[in-house]
Design a binder for these strands. Structure first.
Lengths: 356, 356
DNA sequence: CTGTTAGCGCGTTCAC
DNA sequence: GTGAACGCGCTAACAG
């Protein structure tokens, strides 16, 4: 910048004014400065700027994994909503590990994010301490925890699990199985577990056995994991009638396993997933699933952040509102497509339930 | 930090020494400081540190899209390789847009990355200027461009396209189609286009018509796009014998479309994709594809960066080596799985070609 | 409309 | 073994 100001024959302050379009600069001066900037290929140092402004200009997003279309959509929604306010989004991922989440949050905090959006699950005590008031605002997303850190945008995963069970029961199925998330060291998918919990609760409430609710395999959820779980399920109960998979990923794997074994879906087994992944829509038959608006959650989080923190461009605020604990329920839609069917002789059933 | 030093009754200098484990501090003093740090929940300000050290401690990774398992693997490989050297990875994505890539690179440059890894495609002239020498080292990844910016790690996508054609021809197919990447405004998938180009060249070299090499649909590549392209292909040539899709994503969509129409794959049509996505392995039949080691490319990039730039922990280097233009060919494997079969009466053919 | 001064939070050199 | 002083590149507040 010093070079630029010298080349343009003005002070560094004037250069700054041109760069920020704060006006009050003579057109001729401005032109000289702009020329110098492009001649030198000068790009202002954001780190130094932040240090001075005390506004880092970015929002941290902590994801469990990159390899999941739902989280990708979430990230895109957030980025999109934050762009007009001139915020950048920094993405970190944890592989569902609680320790890794703590590490990620700590390194993000070191760069002083204006806000933190947490899609990772299962916060450690140290993490909770790290995020106490006085710190940047925190939004937990894709769930509505019992003990939220602050703000939350998402859905009740337990309710989604219950809805899955109720739908399968409503179809007349009585022998219900589930493919849960499993655990792997300190890796934990609390949302998947909540869905499984809701499912089990609803099945139990109907007076039916819940021993077929599997929770094994590794994390992150994967196609292969779903295929393996389906195989285990069939070994345990060859006459299982309906299966809920807590992720479309495992549902797709389960569907493939059935196809490999010549088991008709939905003829002999009804299959229901969660997440409404693109792949599920394309499959033959198309996967029945529970859909949530992930891009919408991201956008909502972006809007909330803009509300909580004045955008960096104005330079005005930065003050955090008195912590008005807000939670936003996005709800979900249960989509009965091609992999679910009423029990008994050739039942056909098309329904669509909406929960918000 | 000021607060910490006061609480511990020492100078800020001593606090810094404890934080960096540079030694030369009395155990008792050290304990006092550590206690103060955790009592206050103090996290050092990295931005200020970077300003002073002139080492930002992060590497920028620019991806075309988040919603693609190959790029997710790439990111994981890079992160993994860079972790021991204490680098963080900042991820940006462009949606395949050339203008957006320029914007992303500019904002990254503003934070002074130690290196840049570019998986996005189709650099604008302004981008090339931005990345001229004197700037951080740049690694282009997942391709080996004719006019590389500097270093490159990847494969020849043209060679992959040629291999696809050769394989399909070798199977005895004569009526070959392809599903390319399409363009959408300034969005461009140069790698997909290179694969298509290689394919077309090989088909032409065999003296066969290339009119069935489609390049339409939007970006990013998607299942739906593949299904639509397959429909278009069948409308144009109902008797097409073999199809190469430049992405497994579109290949899976094409396979679904065939299944919906009752067209046997590989019975009537051979189908070959690219990318070796998890989903392709799980499908019935499993998708024939071209595999590349994406995590490996990420790790190789990480190692190259560590070689080019001394890690921030040592604080020693930061100097860029004399630009030894390096290109690393990772090669690819053509995997004939369940969706390709020799033409004619019940031909069976299992081959596995390796190119590096 | 433009320049000067001070300081953001930290690391580093040198004294003590 | 510990502390004081300066500077990293930039911007906020004020002066001219």
């Amino acid at each position: 910048m010093r070079d630029v100001s010298r080349l343009a024959g003005v002070s560094r302050m004037t250069v700054a004014r041109v760069l920020h379009r704060s006006g009050g600069v003579l057109p001729t001066t401005q032109a000289r400065v702009e020329q110098a900037v492009s001649a030198l290929g000068y790009v202002p140092d954001r780190a130094a700027g932040s240090l001075s402004t005390r506004r880092s200009g970015f929002v941290g997003l902590v994801l469990p994994t990159l390899n999941n279309a739902n989280f990708a959509s979430l990230a895109e929604g957030l980025t999109e909503a934050l762009r007009p306010a001139n915020y950048e989004v920094l993405i970190g991922y944890t592989g569902y590990s609680v320790a890794e989440e703590e590490r990620q949050i700590r390194t993000m905090l070191a760069r002083r994010p204006e806000a933190l959006v947490l899609a990772a699950t299962g916060h450690s005590p140290a993490t909770r301490r790290l995020l106490e008031p006085g710190r940047p605002p925190v939004i937990e997303i894709a769930e509505l925890p019992d003990q939220p850190l602050a703000h939350a945008i998402g859905l009740s995963n337990e309710a989604a699990g219950r809805a899955a069970a109720d739908t399968l029961l409503g179809l007349g199925h009585r022998k219900l199985g589930a493919i849960g998330p499993g655990r792997d060291g300190d890796r934990i998918d609390t949302r998947g577990e909540a869905r499984l919990r809701g499912f089990v609760a609803a099945v139990a409430a109907a007076g039916l056995p819940t021993s077929l609710a599997l929770a094994e395999g590794g994390l992150p959820n994967s196609y292969r994991h779903g295929a393996e779980a389906m195989a285990a399920l069939l070994a345990q109960a060859p006459d299982v009638e309906a299966v809920f998979a807590i992720s479309d990923l495992s549902a797709v794997g389960a569907l493939s396993e059935c196809q490999r074994r010549g088991i008709a879906v939905p003829g002999r087994i009804s299959l229901l997933g969660f997440g409404d992944f693109d792949i599920g829509q394309q499959l033959v038959p198309p996967l029945s699933t529970i859909a949530t608006d992930f891009p919408g959650m991201g956008r909502a989080a972006g809007r909330m952040i803009i509300e909580l923190v004045a955008p960096p461009s104005t330079g005005a605020g930065g003050l955090q509102q008195p912590a008005l604990d807000r939670r936003l329920d996005i709800g979900f839609n249960l989509l009965e497509r091609g992999t679910t069917r009423a029990a008994g002789p050739a039942g056909i059933n098309h329904r669509k339930a909406s929960h918000a």
